[in-house]
């Protein structure tokens, strides 16, 4: 093609190769680490003759993960729903409570000690109560995850909303802007980086909560798979469920990180 002259194609290829190279360099240490662990694991199992119920080889874990004997799809859906629900309840509830705290000093003073008290409760110990109140199912597991994950969101939202230049608030004062407008247009977007970094913590807390709930009582879900694998000494199955859990956790974390790049691109790179 005429417009694709030689120099242009060369430049295009150059930039493509450059970004591939950059990606490789950036990810190389992580990939090497993973491969290294897998190789050592496989070698240890085969040379030391470790029995499968103690430590299964990577190969048998993958086999278990893809085995058609286990309804993986159903378990993943159940646990995934619990994780997502826990995350959303914690995020929405935490942002609302944090905003209320920053909105009014009075509310903040009333609410904070109570929230701190709730946060000091060992959430795992509360799990049986939730089952008593709400019965078996996904909902109590969501609540446990939400309970573990919401506190950092409240704190970070409240702190983010009050960490603001006085001059930025003067912008609102000059025009007699109503309080809600200053919150909507200035304070809340300004707090995005704080809120999003708390949501990253919450993403992992939601996973913990959902699995704890399934440990305590459940009839499906990846936590249930781990519990049942114990009784039959099917360790490859337990490993397989673990890997599926971490894949779900990574997906949620990745989604929050992507949201953070879209909503608060100016804060990217500051925390690294």
């Amino acid at each position: 093609m005429a417009f694709l002259d030689d120099a242009f194609t060369k430049r295009l290829w150059g930039s493509v190769l450059n970004s591939v190279k950059r990606l490789l360099i950036e990810w190389f240490p992580a990939i090497l680490m993973f491969i290294g662990v897998l190789v050592i694991w496989q070698l240890a199992v085969s040379t030391l003759g470790i029995r499968e119920y103690l430590l299964p080889s990577p190969g048998s874990v993958v086999d278990a993960m893809l085995s058609s004997e286990i309804p993986w799809g159903k378990h993943i859906l159940v646990t995934g729903t619990a994780i997502l629900g826990a995350f959303l309840i914690a995020a929405v509830g935490g942002i609302l409570l944090g905003t209320l705290t920053a909105w009014s000093n009075m509310v903040g003073r009333a609410l904070m000690p109570f929230l701190v008290f709730v946060n000091t409760l060992p959430k795992v110990a509360v799990a049986p109560l939730f089952l008593l109140w709400f019965g078996y199912g996904i909902f109590p597991n969501m609540l446990i995850g939400a309970l573990i994950g919401f506190f950092p969101v409240v704190i970070n939202t409240a702190v983010g909303l009050s960490q603001i230049d006085d001059e930025m608030l003067d912008l609102g004062r000059v025009f007699n802007a109503p309080k809600w407008k200053v919150f909507a247009k200035i304070r809340i977007p300004n707090a995005y980086p704080y809120i999003l970094s708390a949501l990253k913590v919450t993403a992992t807390a939601a996973v913990v909560g959902a699995i704890v709930g399934e440990f305590v009582a459940s009839q499906s879900g990846l936590g249930y798979v781990i519990i049942t694998s114990q009784s039959s000494l099917n360790t490859p199955l337990a490993f397989g469920a673990l890997v599926w859990i971490s894949i779900l956790g990574l997906a949620l974390y990745g989604a929050v990180a992507a949201l953070s790049r879209v909503l608060a691109p100016w804060a990217e790179g500051q925390e690294n």
Partner: peptide, 12 residues
């Protein structure tokens, strides 16, 4: 209209 020492532009 007010202009401050820093521009205080909203980054978003």
């Amino acid at each position: 209209g007010m202009v401050f020492q820093s521009a205080v532009l909203l980054k978003w």
